[in-house]
C-alpha cells in the first residue's frame, strides 16, 4: 500500500482540552478509579486472586493443562497409534511406539506399546488434541504438575492413563456424544468482501 493511497484514513492525535491540560480534574478521575479498586478489595473483598494452597483455582473448561490418554468402555486405551499427534506436535514431545493390535481387538489394527510425552518440552498448544482422529489424547485442567527431576516429568502410557482416571469425573470426554445438530452455524455468514 502506498503512503498516498486514498483509502488510507488519517487520524490526528486528540488535542487536550483545557481541563486535561491542567491535570487536576483528570487526576481526580484517576484517583476515583483507583479508589474504587482499593475500597473494593479492602471493604467488599473484590480481589481476583485466590489464596492458592488453601483455595484451588478452577481453570476455564478450555484450559490446556497436562495430557491424558482416554480409555474406551472396555478400559482399553483409545489410541490407535496413528502418529498424527506426534506429527502435529510443534515441540516434538510425543514419542509413540505402535505394535499390531491383539486379535481380540477387531476394531483396530494397531495400539501403542509405549506412549511417552515429555511434559517439560510440551508447549501445551493442544494441537495433538485437535489432530487425534479417535479422541484418545486430551488436555485436562490439571495445572499443578511438579517433579524433582527431568526424568520424573516424562510421562509414560501408564501415567497418562492414570491422569484419565483422576480427571474422568471432573472432565468427561469432550466428544463421546455426537455433536447435536443445533451446533451447526445458526446464521448464514455474509459473502466475503474484498
Amino acid at each position: 500500500m502506498r503512503a498516498d493511497d486514498p483509502s488510507l484514513k488519517r487520524i490526528e492525535p486528540p488535542t487536550l482540552k483545557w481541563h486535561e491540560k491542567v491535570y487536576v480534574p483528570t487526576i481526580l478521575q484517576g484517583l476515583a478509579v483507583t479508589g474504587r479498586h482499593i475500597l473494593g478489595v479492602a471493604v467488599a473483598s473484590q480481589q481476583v486472586t485466590v489464596q492458592y494452597p488453601e483455595e484451588q483455582h478452577v481453570p476455564s473448561p478450555n484450559y490446556r493443562g497436562v495430557h491424558r490418554l482416554n480409555k474406551d468402555e472396555q478400559g482399553r486405551v483409545k489410541c490407535v497409534a496413528c502418529m498424527l499427534c506426534a506429527t502435529a506436535c510443534p515441540a516434538h514431545c510425543i514419542d509413540i511406539v505402535g505394535t499390531t493390535a491383539p486379535p481380540e481387538w477387531p476394531d483396530r489394527e494397531k495400539y501403542p506399546a509405549s506412549f511417552v510425552i515429555d511434559e517439560l518440552r510440551c508447549i501445551y498448544c493442544g494441537m495433538c488434541e485437535e489432530a487425534c482422529p479417535v479422541e484418545a489424547i486430551e488436555l485436562t485442567g490439571l495445572y499443578d504438575i511438579t517433579g524433582l527431576s527431568r526424568e520424573e516429568m516424562i510421562y509414560d502410557k501408564a501415567k497418562l492413563l492414570s491422569v484419565y482416571d483422576v480427571t474422568r469425573d471432573a472432565e468427561p470426554m469432550k466428544y463421546t456424544q455426537v455433536p447435536a445438530e443445533a451446533s451447526a452455524p445458526t446464521r448464514i455468514l455474509p459473502p466475503l468482501s474484498h
Binding site: H37, V41, A42, T49
Partner: peptide, 12 residues
Amino acid sequence: VAAYAQDRIGPN
C-alpha cells in the same frame, strides 16, 4: 495499598 489497587490481597 499497592495490592488493593491491583485487586490483589497483598502480604497476609
